[in-house]
Design a protein around this nucleic acid. Structure first.
Lengths: 318, 318
DNA sequence: CTGTTAGCGCATTCAC
DNA sequence: GTGAATGCGCTAACAG
């Protein structure tokens, strides 16, 4: 593998000149440029990016932390991230944490070790106050409401308001036994939704219906089983992921439970499956979120914190 | 940021000694080791991995090429890859190609530029003969039958045989109008399945039923619409992805089409959704495949080519 | 057991 | 316009 020095020698110029033509700097005579280009062509010269990185002190790499790559929510987010990565000639290393602290720590350490220039954390289990400490080593962007936080940047949707809106919508439609299904209980986004639910119920008292640990289509069955068995049943459900909503929808059909007559459903995300099954949902611009996250980590955003808006898509499950 | 030289100075030893304690080499006295460790602790020393990479001529990074990260098939594969990456203290950069040649080329170039040490190509559009050329820059592993190929390694399932088996199974069950649904038409795996279908039909003549460009749940509706409209309908369908099979299943339910009475269904992958919906399917060990792919790219596999076996899971759609 | 020294491949002052 | 020299941070002979 020829290096820059070999090229210089073969072209009869200095390494500086070679470096200049590689990086398209001005101040290189056409003749020399051509001579260098010709040699590079001849030996199929390839820059060693690692050397560039060391020399510049930048890895040209971004870290992306997700709990599970197989979940469509994160799949779509990665879609957006990958899109902007390509456009900006950047690459990213994907770190799947499975919500294990040690994996998140590893990602943080990569930042410390200059393996990556910045970090996008789509979801985390470690304390944000802990994560913040690593901001000194590179830009960190999270995917939750971190408004006011000086250390990390954020791109988020207002889950509190969305939940309030969704609950009010159901209430106005006449439903009085509102419940919700969510993934994990912890985490900032879950916290805001839980608070919204509590706040809403304070003004509209009713029994609580909360189903946790629901991530995938198949979890819908679990929820329906649970509801079927229980004496007190909700008459409307906010489901924080369309795929889970689709699972519930399917399970209900199989169990002869009418939607929305027996139970109404509002999903979140507006994934294709929601459209196909006619599920009323709150559209969350996940792909856009991924794109914005990437732009933030590259320092191309105007404000450190950015709120994306959601839209109610009315279909047939309410 | 302190570097190894600073540490050496502060600890009153040479850089070599510091390097040795970092890399846990033997032949370092306990006293010096402690002295070094103490200094490293004090200044919160962190190795610069880029420098290590340059020095060793290895990036400590693997490239992973997928067409779409959001598809559950690749999601599961990434799951397996990530698992082995963690176990072997490696990281990987994810390259989403969208089946665009330029993106695949970019991945190949990264190999050339030593940004990555090896490449896992889960699916590609470029010619394999073209891809092979880059083997000189690092190990390349593909996810298709490349038996006999000296340049790339592979981890695959025998799609030809699986298809033959599936068709024979349906035939033996009495179905005589067999069809199949697949993603893209091109690609090695599609080629083998198509050949299997053709070969089978040669011995069991019937009209052909082939549906292409089916990737996601919502594509199931498309297929059912198509079948509904057409005069000649298949009575059994091989569906190369469980999520699509699930979509077909759902669409059939909505359209009052009986399964398996009006049409039988065999999915592939054995994803959770297939279990939930009781879909008969060929289990493909996707996560294991991802794991094996990673082990291959790290040079930890015995044979360059590895075939994984599939299992028929009988449920209720045949 | 320990240290000196020479790379690894490139970018970047700073003179000329 | 051009090039010599130095540095980025670490590893690995090699010598002691």
């Amino acid at each position: 593998m020829a290096n820059i020095r070999d090229i210089a020698k073969m072209a009869g110029v200095s390494v500086t000149t070679v470096s200049r033509v590689i990086n398209k700097h001005p101040y290189v005579s056409e003749e020399k440029r051509h001579a260098v280009l010709k040699v590079m062509e001849a030996v199929d010269y390839q820059v060693n990016r690692t050397a560039v990185s060391l020399s510049q002190g930048k890895a040209h790499l971004i870290g992306v932390v997700v709990p599970f790559a197989k979940h469509p929510f994160f799949g779509l987010m990665i879609e957006g991230i990958a899109k902007q990565a390509v456009e900006n000639h950047y690459h990213f290393v994907l770190i799947q944490t499975n919500y294990e602290e040690s994996r998140e720590q590893e990602a943080l350490d990569m930042l410390k070790h200059k393996q990556i220039d910045g970090l996008i954390i789509c979801s985390h289990i470690m304390d944000l106050t802990e994560i913040e400490q690593y901001q000194q080593y590179g830009t960190i962007v999270v995917c939750e409401n971190a408004e006011g936080n000086q250390k990390v940047e954020s791109v988020y949707v207002d889950h509190y308001q969305s939940f309030i809106d969704a609950l009010a919508y159901l209430y106005q439609k006449g439903y009085r036994k509102l419940g919700y299904c969510i993934g994990r209980e912890s985490g900032s986004n879950s916290y805001f939704r839980q608070r919204a639910y509590q706040d809403f119920l304070r003004h509209h008292p009713q029994k609580k219906f909360v189903f946790t640990e629901n991530y995938y289509f198949e979890d819908g069955q679990k929820i329906v089983d649970q509801i079927t068995r229980s004496k007190h049943k909700p008459d409307a459900l906010l489901v924080t992921s369309d795929v889970v909503a689709a699972g519930i929808f399917t399970a209900c059909q199989n169990a002869q439970i009418g939607i929305p007559d027996d139970i109404a459903l509002i999903g979140f995300d507006n994934q294709p499956i929601a459209k196909m099954m006619g599920i009323t949902t709150f559209e969350i611009p996940i792909v856009t979120m991924g794109e914005r996250l990437f732009l933030h980590v590259l320092g191309m955003a105007d404000e450190p914190h950015e709120k994306l808006s959601v839209t109610l898509i009315e279909r047939k499950t309410v």
